[in-house]
Design a protein around this nucleic acid. Structure first.
Lengths: 285, 285
DNA sequence: CTACTTTACGGTATGCGTAAGCATT
DNA sequence: AATGCTTACGCATACCGTAAAGTAG
């Protein structure tokens, strides 16, 4: 079995052309490489070099050998990467969120339950979540609908209602509740990274100009101090984060009243038992 | 870079199940393996085993790692095999013969000219020889026809005539020469491994029962002491190896009078100059 | 009691760097 | 003179085998 360290040095020589250059690249000395190359030839029982007094060159076999050697080096690097990736995956819980509020609420809970593990969270519309659970891309997911799939275990974990904040005196504030379609055509403040919410906003209000805010602070700042309508959530409202000087009106569309469901593969239900035991219908509220 | 020797030991443990069994397989000691496995984990920065007081088991990552390790070991073995094969090929001259007499004559010449190299000789009908020269499967070939191919360099190196030995009194012995077709339907002694000769015997005498002899001695013995007709060659006849008590008749068919041509790739003509200089039209006669 | 792993210990040998030699450009 | 390969020498350390301890079945 040929020592991979020799192959590494051999390939470095192939790329550098001289032992001294290779020695510098490998942070070692020329004499060390001289000996290593001799040992490689010895181990293989094959001559790889043509030696003149002060020049070392690969012979025909040596050139081919150097190219073959790359495959072995690649295989070895691959091995290391794959083992580490596998191990990392065992130490990582990957979870998909369909909306920001579930992430806000569940992240601290996940961190306490799965102490020492990496929590990797994505946020996006949840249409693909069932597939991603089945392909093991996600270990957990928070959906806004029960997928009713026998391979997916689901537990309701909360609820969220959507409101709209408007300037006092806006005609819409005189209704006890309004529809998204009533907002069509206006300019409205909206956060990016809001998962599934994004999609039906676009469906119901195709002519609306959304003023997307990446940063939550900017969003609150603008919501408070501009005349643009902005969305508000029961979650933040119940925690006193209403926009002063604005009037908040309920949205009547059913999509604006959503339940949240925590899901995992039925086969992995036991693995996440502690988590499911911890949550209930009012965890996200 | 992970030491391949560690992977070898690791994979042995995976296959054997215990360190002691692996140690025996690898002709080493248990303590050496204990330390090696620790070092592998250390080098990778990954835990591969679950250790109880007197049992060592692979964990989930370890099982996968052992399977990945096989790829690296295979790659390393491949490397060694490929380098050796390449080197061997450089030290081997592969030559195809279309008939046994050229092989008999040329083999000692090849051995003196290419001293230290391995001579690998095949014998078969020469229809594929040009292709095999072009694909580098053969370095040299002896053909019974000039292929007239610009990529193939050819030099005539001899001639051979075919005769038939018959019992005295056989009606065919009254002709000065006969045709192969005259022999059809008889039982005739024939050597195996006669290259291209085999094919036209079968073409011209489809109803003949050939009594194939693998061994040259058996062939001479039977030719001498049985009443079966047998083939004879100008080469052996000119060296006094006629069959006593038999009458030898010339064969008139043009295929029974063949020239031999030594061939190589035109591009490698210089490489075999010494050989081509040595041979001439009467080398094989 | 047997089979297995692990730690401890002492010796070997493998491999490194420095220094020096020598050839080529 | 500068560059590059090789050999010689002394040293560090990495690895091995033996011995011994400890544990589970």
């Amino acid at each position: 079995m040929i020592d991979i360290h020799l192959l590494e040095q051999f390939h470095a020589f192939y790329e550098c052309g001289t032992l001294s250059a290779a020695a510098e690249q490998l942070h070692t000395s020329q004499p060390a490489l001289t000996r290593a190359m001799k040992k490689l030839e010895e181990d293989l029982g094959v001559t790889l070099f043509v030696r003149s007094k002060n020049q070392l060159k690969l012979n025909d076999t040596g050139i081919h050998a150097a190219e073959y050697a790359r495959d072995v080096l690649d295989a070895d690097r691959d091995f290391e990467a794959k083992v580490k990736a596998y191990e990392r995956r065992l130490r990582t819980i990957s979870i998909g969120f369909c909306a920001p509020v579930p992430q806000t609420v569940l992240t601290p809970i996940l961190n306490t339950i799965f102490d020492g593990m990496t929590i990797s969270a994505d946020m996006m519309d949840d249409i693909e979540f069932v597939d991603r659970l089945k392909s093991h891309e996600y270990n957990l997911a928070v959906l806004h609908e029960d997928p009713k799939d026998k391979d997916i275990y689901v537990k309701k974990c909360g609820h969220e209602d959507l409101f709209i904040s408007l300037m006092p005196g806006d005609p819409l504030t005189f209704y006890p509740e309004i529809h998204l379609s009533d907002l069509d055509g206006k300019s409205i403040l909206l956060l990016t990274r809001i998962g599934f919410w994004m999609n039906f906003h676009k469906d119901k209000t195709p002519n609306t100009n959304y003023l997307l805010q990446i940063d939550m602070d900017s969003f609150f700042e603008l919501s408070q101090n501009s005349s643009y309508p902005s969305f508000a959530s029961s979650y933040y409202m119940s925690r006193g984060q209403e926009f002063k000087g604005k009037v908040t009106v309920a949205l009547a569309d059913p999509e604006c009243h959503t339940d949240y469901f925590l899901a995992c593969l039925t086969s992995e239900k036991e693995k996440y038992k502690t988590l499911f035991d911890r949550i209930n219908e009012t965890t996200i509220l």
